[in-house]
Design a protein around this nucleic acid. Structure first.
Lengths: 189, 189
DNA sequence: GTACGTCGCAACGCAACCGTTTCGTCGTGA
DNA sequence: TCACGACGAAACGGTTGCGTTGCGACGTAC
């Protein structure tokens, strides 16, 4: 019977190592060292570096993302931004997420895992938020949820991850207001 | 006298290698191999992998970014999106840029280089576009150019780089219209 | 035509990591 | 009490890249 505390230590080490050096530089030896564990213990559980990371991603996926339902489009969007901004400012996650997104361009398995663990769920959430807003009459029928996600998540990701700028007080409120206005506005001209 | 054709071959190889395997996995041996050149030729010119990349980035920076001046805010924004979408869909640049942006989080020198070669220039362009729009009366005084850049570049970067989705016909027009509307709208409530 | 510097190539010793195997220890279940 | 299996540690041979060195070939400037 594999010891669960060892398994947990390895999982944490993978996360930390991923944040520290990135997927490309991450090594099994480094993970075992960080976890205070023999390489044997790692290889007994996973067969490769890739398998370790895929396991980590699907573990994150399993815990799911909260689906906001505040009763208003603004409230839902604001809640989405709140959650996303926390993730993108988490000291470890803020390094791991962009790193894996970039690696996904080179590894189909990572791409697939990230897609089903994160992007598809976000798309689903956006779709749900849009659907409810349409039902409430806040948005016109036929509103494109993918475009909605671009407008909601894009500016935040750009600022926090790409530019790595700060988040002034009230900025999330402003982004939410802006996104709602952009979605509400008739897409004419 | 160093042979210029060799220098050029190395520079190209760095760019291609960066796109193929990323900064983390890139090796001097791989670059020399790809350039069809001895390691000696590389070390005679640059002292490390980092120096090679910094040189590449500042070479890109030197050629500068076009500053749009179409006479209207929409025209300028649309032109910005056009240029950015080309860069982010270029088969090599679309891999190199996100990779270096992520590496920048780990290497202050890369961060600094990218910042002065790309981000600061983009901010400058956004500032110029906003300034002219204010002068024309299209935007209110005190419009935040950083926020403007978030709203213009964020959705596009999210779609092309993060989600790696497609770009439907008319999408850039729509993004430009949306961004202009978001900027124009009085930022109340 | 001679001298110099760059060229590609190959080899150097060193370090890190690969994935595997062996070993002695320890904890648990039968 | 005993057997079994997971544990950490260490070593294995092999691969890759490091940064350096020595080599003979080539080309150009003087």
């Amino acid at each position: 019977m594999l010891r669960e505390d060892v398994t947990d230590a390895i999982r944490s080490a993978v996360f930390e190592e991923l944040a520290a050096v990135g997927f490309a530089r991450m090594s099994i030896e480094g993970i075992a060292r960080r976890a205070g564990v023999g390489k044997t213990a790692v290889y007994r559980r996973w067969k490769s570096k890739l398998a370790l990371v895929l396991d980590l991603v699907s573990a994150v996926a399993a815990q799911g993302l909260p689906v906001p339902s505040t009763g208003s489009l603004y409230g839902d969007v604001r809640a989405l931004l709140e959650v996303a901004s926390h993730a993108l400012r988490h000291p470890l996650a803020s390094r791991v997420i962009p790193d894996l997104l970039v690696e996904a361009a080179r590894h189909p398995e990572i791409s697939e895992a990230i897609k089903s663990a994160l992007l598809d769920k976000e798309k689903g959430i956006a779709a749900a938020v849009v659907r409810e807003a349409v039902a409430r009459g806040e948005l016109p029928e036929g509103t494109d949820p993918d475009r909605a996600l671009d407008l909601i998540a894009g500016p935040l990701y750009w600022r926090l991850v790409v530019v790595r700028g700060d988040l002034p007080a009230g900025y999330l409120d402003d982004l939410a207001t802006t996104a709602v206005a952009a979605l509400t506005r008739d897409r004419t001209t």
